[in-house]
Nucleic acid binder design. Structure first.
Length: 919
RNA sequence: GCCCGGAUGGCGGAAUUGGUAGACGCGUUGGUCUCAAACACCAAUGAGGUAACACUCGUGCCGGUUCGACCCCGGCUCCGGGUACCA
């Protein structure tokens, strides 16, 4: 009887969905386990073979935990707002909702063909108004919240207003923008506009003028994590700096907690490091410098207060507030020209320029409070406006950037920490002894830092300070296809919609483009205002909005009263296992943690961290094939012979290449110009070259899972993806290997067939068979617990090979093996489970336990090595004492040969492992 | 530049705490079955060496610790990821 995977898989997929086998409900008698995949953005191209890798792994784990007796929540949905759909809409005029729905349909079909155990009744889609209602709701909550540093949590803004009314803001310790001190009377006398402006400084979702990453090609603002090397991540367009009024999220209020929370998470160190670096905590000191003859004080942050005696000049950013005041009349023209040039540079140009040292002297001098020297104040674009105070004290001897600047402009370089050679380069290390430094001479760096900070604080010219690289998140996008803000403007003052009016649905527009006056697409919508006529906000929310709390929505997806009911979140709590790509390290995974902490502070959820354990699956790379065309001819030369010609390598579709041998007829048909091509063959074949690169349409190396499922079945594909290598590692796809896994499944299937009929024996299993089974149970359990799925597959192969050799078809063995295999190959396992006479689904069975008694070895075959080199093997009883083995091994005839008469110096016996004889 | 990760046969990879390097699979070669092919099955397969053994070498490179090192330590090379005037 053949293994007809197509029939089997269809049959069971149908059965599972009809019988709702994967439907999950709260069951307080069982422990919960929440397995989550990073939900996909459904692109038009459909899934390729790399996408499901993580989904397969999580599905295996989810099924395993279910068999272990856990109540497993394993949902799936779609991250459906985003730029590609909108750009497609601009090109084709089709509504993004329409193309998005089509793409989701296709994705879902592809996912369902893979036999995942998702509870599809919990499916969510971020562009569904019933879903984004809760994204808007969270925004309203953030708007009406502030961060109280005294008890380190977010609180309702009403509490803050009460304090303002009672006593003003003097006692407030909040995470906020610079706000002048006012008393209660002043507050009460402010008009609505003024009060709104003050509150904006405190709100966790607030409106502010900020320098943004403006991308003209996309017509929108981008967040820091959406820009790489001065180009937009999506599309690679130029990004400029621009001052714009934008909605922001005060993520920086949570920096310490985002940092500290990492310690409790089971994430890889690499990922934690990425987040730590992104948050960028640095300890140091804020120092005030008097600028001569201006009456101004320049405040600068430094992480190296110990090097204060080495500070020889100061630099401010071109955008610095005090710059005009510091600039002397003589230097004014120069400075203004420089500032103008710097401001016009795009982010990209500024970065490309970074070896071009530039700057202009302002004409002013600042006093070094310790060395008492006068330091010229410069303006230069290597100092960033957005970090610290936008000004620095430059210590050329101990900072490589200051060093380069000082060399370029011929400024003094004063060594104050010994250990380097400042003739050659700056000495940046935080090691060494202070020299030329007055009262800190002779101290080491650490000691000197503390001493200077204390001196600064004592003199009242600064304070200890911690700075972060992390910025507040820009939350507005000038786009159509995103969540509308639940905000309207009354006399220019922003107000949030009443919660009972949510969702505020995305309006129809006549084009998905900005208006002629440069307003976002929503400005085109008719009646985009409240019934009273107050205009709605025209920006929409960014991509990360919808993905920041989706894991809560799955717990209670149809709840119309709350994001998630108390009952649901108190049972499911948070995600136990989260699998997805590392590319979300500094975006989604920071925002979701922030969002979650906010909901936690206000008591809407009961866990402070959303994702307990997180695994980043590696990328599956493509394996491209090449043909080699002789330059100037329509002749292709086989790879092995190409060195004799001058050739151009050309990508060839991997689907017409088998084992690197080109299907020449298919190749000729693939393009008109190849129809009459000539080929120079080796051994009668045209051999293609190959290379590992990204899996992409443009490299003709995309492998579609649908084709493989058609040819081998989903079970084979699932197993093969796991077999490729460790989950977290990147690895190239090579379709060739799938045959081996397919053979394994057929071999497993054959265990149950005798003379063409399904046969299972109720005969008692032998010791040997039991040992094979329990050895496998042990390995599978251990490996699955440490997410080593690739080694698991080989353990299955070994088991089936051994059982095949014994021609074992005993129920006692095969029933348990079928359960072991079921998380990996659910369809085939279910089929066999049923054929064995079981009426319930295999996924209602329980995972077999390893019984150690079957694993006992009587004899141990020891490798015997001499000076660490294995020479032969000798068997000894498992319970034989070390001393006895030492004696026995010396009498072994082979030992005599290897000793060749010399006396052994030492004998090492590691029980059950190895014998080593030192000669 | 800085921070992480990695390098093992022709290929993907295994070796869980320092204890038989190369499990398992692919590919390749030979064989059985077949008119033939496919499927299936059997055998060999790190390199050198040999008729076959023996033996020698072998986990990116150099050195060290150890009875014993893919694994630990020091110094490099190359590849991948992150980040980049963050003071």
């Amino acid at each position: 009887m053949e293994y007809h995977f197509n029939d089997i898989e269809k049959k069971w997929q149908h059965y599972w969905s009809q019988n709702k086998i994967y439907r999950t409900k709260i069951d307080k008698d069982k422990p919960k386990y929440y397995v989550l995949d990073m939900f996909p953005y459904p692109s038009g191209a459909g899934l390729h073979v790399g996408h499901p890798l993580g989904y397969i792994a999580s599905d295996i784990y989810a099924r395993y935990m279910r068999l272990k007796g856990y109540n497993v929540l394993h949902p799936m949905g779609f991250d459906a707002f985003g730029l590609p759909a909108e750009q497609y809409a601009i090109q084709t005029g089709q509504h993004p909702a329409k193309t998005t729905a089509q793409n989701i349909k296709r994705y879902k079909e592809q996912l369902q063909k893979l036999g995942f155990s998702y509870d599809w009744d919990r499916e969510i889609t971020t562009c569904d108004p019933n879903y984004y209602k809760w994204t808007q709701w969270a925004f309203i909550k953030m708007f009406h919240a502030w961060y109280n540093k005294n008890n380190n949590q977010a609180e309702p803004i009403e509490k803050l207003i009460e304090i303002f009314e009672r006593e003003g803001n003097a006692s407030i310790n909040a995470s906020c923008a610079d706000t002048p001190i006012f008393d209660a009377a002043t507050w009460q006398n402010m008009n609505a506009h003024e009060q709104s402006d003050i509150l904006m400084n405190y709100r966790l979702a607030y409106l502010a003028d900020t320098m943004v990453n403006w991308c003209p090609a996309l017509g929108t603002v981008l967040a820091n994590d959406e820009v790489k090397e001065g180009l937009s991540v999506r599309g690679g367009h130029i990004v400029e700096r621009k001052l714009m009024k934008q909605w922001m999220l005060r993520v920086t209020a949570y920096t310490e907690r985002l940092l500290d929370g990492l310690d409790k998470l089971e994430w890889s160190d690499a990922l934690k490091d990425m987040q730590k670096n992104w948050i960028g905590r640095s300890e140091g000191c804020l120092i005030h410098f008097e600028v001569q003859n201006t009456g101004h004080i320049l405040k600068s942050f430094t992480t190296r207060p110990d090097t204060i005696f080495g500070a020889t000049f100061m630099v401010v950013a071109p955008e610095h507030d005090l710059l005009p005041a510091l600039t002397t009349d003589a230097q004014k023209e120069h400075v203004e020209a420089y500032v103008k040039e710097a401001k016009n540079k795009s982010e990209r140009e500024r970065q490309a320029d970074f070896k071009n040292i530039s700057g202009v002297f302002t004409g002013s001098y600042a006093l070094n409070p310790f060395s008492k020297t006068l330091m010229p104040v410069w303006v230069a674009d290597y100092v960033l406006a957005g970090y610290g105070t936008g000004s620095i004290m430059a210590v050329p001897a101990h900072d490589s950037r200051d060093y380069a600047f000082a060399k370029h402009f011929n400024m003094p370089i004063n060594e104050v920490v010994s250990g380097g050679n400042i003739e050659e380069e700056s000495y940046d290390a935080k090691e060494g002894t202070l020299i030329n430094s007055g009262f800190i001479n002779g101290m080491d760096v650490q000691q000197a830092m503390q001493t200077v900070i204390e001196a600064v604080e004592k003199q009242g010219i600064g304070e200890r300070q911690v700075n972060y690289r992390l910025r507040d998140a820009i939350f507005s996008r000038q786009r159509y296809w995103g969540e509308p803000f639940p905000v309207y403007y009354k006399d220019g003052v922003p107000h949030t919609l009443s919660e009972d009016l949510l969702p505020l649905e995305l309006p129809e527009v006549d084009a998905y483009l900005p208006t002629e006056s440069g307003e976002p697409p929503l400005a085109r919508a008719k009646n985009w205002h409240t019934p009273e006529g107050h205009p709605y906000e025209c920006s929409t929310m960014p991509g990360f909005a919808g993905s920041s709390a989706y894991y809560y929505r799955y717990m209670d997806p149809h709840n119309d009263e709350a994001l998630v009911s108390e009952d649901s979140h108190k049972y499911w709590r948070n995600v136990d296992l989260y699998i997805g790509g590392a590319e979300h390290a500094t975006g989604h995974l920071i925002y979701a943690r922030f969002w979650n902490k906010f909901l936690f502070d206000l008591g809407y959820v009961c866990e402070e961290e959303p994702f307990k354990k997180l695994i980043n699956q590696g990328m599956i790379q493509g394996r491209s094939n090449f043909v080699y065309r002789i330059k100037g001819q329509n002749t292709f030369v086989s790879c092995g012979l190409k060195k004799d010609y001058e050739t151009t390598p050309i990508h060839v579709d991997v689907n017409i290449v088998h084992n690197d041998i080109l299907d020449i007829e298919a190749f000729k048909k693939s393009r008109e110009e190849y129809a009459n091509a000539d080929f120079i063959l080796e051994n009668n074949n045209y051999l293609c070259g190959h290379e590992v690169e990204k899996m992409s349409k443009s490299f003709f190396n995309v492998i579609n899972p649908d084709d493989l499922i058609e040819k081998y079945g989903a079970d084979t594909l699932r197993l093969y993806e796991m077999f490729l290598g460790p989950l977290e590692q990147s690895k190239p796809w090579d379709t060739k290997g799938i045959e081996g896994v397919f053979r394994f499944l057929k071999k497993f299937w054959k265990l149950f067939y005798k003379d063409g009929a399904f046969t299972i024996s109720d005969e008692k299993a032998t010791e040997e068979e039991l040992k094979i089974l329990h050895k496998t149970i042990k390995r599978i359990t251990e490996d699955i617990e440490r997410f080593s799925f690739n080694t698991n597959v080989s353990a299955f192969m070994i088991c089936v090979n051994e059982l095949s050799d014994l021609k074992c078809n005993k129920r006692e063995i095969l029933e348990k093996l079928t359960i072991l295999l079921s998380p990996y190959i659910p369809h085939l396992a279910e089929e066999i489970w049923q054929k064995m006479g079981n009426e319930n689904s295999v996924f209602n069975a329980s995972f077999p336990a390893c019984e150690e008694k079957y694993l006992k070895e009587n004899q141990i075959l020891y490798p015997v090595s001499f000076n660490g080199k294995t020479r032969f093997k000798a068997a000894f009883p498992a319970d034989m004492a070390k001393q006895d083995i030492e004696k026995m091994i010396l009498t072994h005839e082979q030992t005599q040969k290897w000793l060749s008469g010399k006396p052994p110096k030492k004998i090492i016996v590691v029980p059950h492992r190895i014998i080593n004889i030192v000669v």
